[in-house]
Design a binder for these strands. Structure first.
Lengths: 116, 116
DNA sequence: TTCGTATATTCGATATATCGAATATACGAA
DNA sequence: TTCGTATATTCGATATATCGAATATACGAA
């Protein structure tokens, strides 16, 4: 695979590599929503939400259209939803591992905190 | 979805959000390989490859086993290959967009370079 | 025009990721 | 033991991402 294409793939993963942005894409799973609704649903800071939406727009994960005062967002390609679905299955088949990993991370964080 | 789980998903995407690591996972598509072979195939610096493998290990994308002098790596769960496959379809259906986006980025880089 | 609401952008501070160079570790063979 | 090969880790420098606060922009209504 050409390098440029790999870089492009990496960029898409990068775009999804933040909990808030995953939450946004999931919120848009069933169709478009105005930015304000996304902000409400996910309880985000307005500026922060806008920044994350900008990242998703830049990487073309999401498209937007203005309607009067509002800007509606939608996932550009349903294939991305499919990616998230496969990911969901991945997580389900590893909940146990995932949870114990999470616990480990938490423990590490705590002992680090204590050490300081 | 609980926050911790979203963080975990983000971490997996983060693990894949680098061209070298995508290349590594793709190299392992058809089965395990020793680190040395990965390094050769992808023409990586030894230290750099080891660092990226460490990231993939930490996020459990990949598992390793030692055999004598060598360490063999394999993708832990075939579902991840499936994720990459769906991604592949995604890219195929957007090659045109992707390429023009790439060109744009290149152009921007060049004009930035010229401006300096 | 001017105002209010919705959204985007910029800025500076901080955290995180990446890299190459140097060094450390693990293991088999002599 | 000691050496060679394969691999991992640490370090310091640099680039990139994230955040909240402040500010800018877009648009409809008055």
């Amino acid at each position: 695979m050409p390098d440029a294409l790999r870089q492009f793939k990496a960029d898409v993963f990068q775009a999804l590599a933040h909990p808030t942005r995953i939450a946004i894409v999931e919120a848009l799973r069933d169709g478009e929503l105005p930015a304000g609704t996304i902000i409400e649903k996910l309880e985000l800071e307005q500026a922060n939400a806008s920044q994350h939406l900008a990242v998703l727009r830049a990487k073309q994960i999401v498209v937007s259209r203005r309607e009067g005062n509002q800007v509606f967002y939608a996932v550009r390609d349903p294939l991305l939803i499919e990616v998230l679905d496969v990911m969901r299955r991945y997580f389900q088949s590893h909940v146990e591992d995932s949870l114990s990993l999470l616990r480990e991370i938490e423990r590490a964080d705590k002992s680090e905190g204590a050490a300081r």
